[in-house]
Design a protein around this nucleic acid. Structure first.
Lengths: 117, 117
DNA sequence: TTCCGAAGTTCGTAAATTATGAACTATAGA
DNA sequence: TCTATAGTTCATAATTTACGAACTTCGGAA
């Protein structure tokens, strides 16, 4: 297996971050990791919003998040511990991640309200 | 020609915005419009960062921005007047656009510094 | 040790997106 | 009415993404 690639924070790009977070599955994964506040394994997310994601697809999504610089993955025994790189990104692009996450949360809140109209 | 489609602000999604702005050409267009502070035509952007963009491609990029809800386009004679929908989006997703634009500007600033290292 | 199962990755191919040239539409002005 | 300009649409090539099947690793039995 190839070693994991993590871009240095200076190589992280805005377009990479936006692209990674423009996919609802990856966003669900990322938000889940942020909410958990601690390392998460891939298999934690096999089920995303009522939909079962094939593990090969899930693996690619984690790779996208990793290569965009959003998360850090470390092999630990047979599984993978994933943590967010929020702090580094906050330093490089202040306010970016929190604005995106707030927007997603606002959208989710609105959607759930909607069905009760 | 088909009439132009503009989503209502309530149908604008975060993923749509992030996807639209994860492309460097579209971002350059959008930032250009914001900087100009007034309506811009498509042809203003035929040249984006040293690269000539075919007009069919440019047309698609404008469509993507329009359908994501980022801009409003109105036919005016033979040309198209494009304006941003910043204010509406700011209301729906406070801070999102300004954080993204600030991040892009920070990145551009760093890149131009870089060559002078 | 050797074997087995769990967790992920990689590869090949199908499906979906995107880019772009060529042809077309609409409008202003001569 | 003719022509040039600004932009759109369409067809197709190129790129990206999804996912099943096969593979790799590691941990824990037996």
């Amino acid at each position: 297996m190839k070693p994991l690639v993590h871009p240095s924070i200076d190589d992280v790009t805005v377009e990479g971050i936006l692209h990674a977070l423009s996919d609802p599955v990856r966003t669900a994964i990322y938000l889940g990791m942020v909410d958990a506040g601690c390392a998460q394994t891939c298999s934690t997310f096999q089920q995303v919003s009522d939909r079962a994601i094939p593990k090969s697809t899930l693996s690619q999504h984690f790779r996208t998040l990793r290569e965009a610089g959003l998360i850090r993955s470390e092999r630990q025994g047979v599984e993978m511990r994933n943590t967010t790189r929020c702090a580094e990104i906050e330093q490089r692009f202040p306010g970016l991640l929190s604005a995106i996450m707030a927007a997603y949360r606002a959208q989710a809140a609105k959607e759930s309200t909607h069905s009760a109209d």
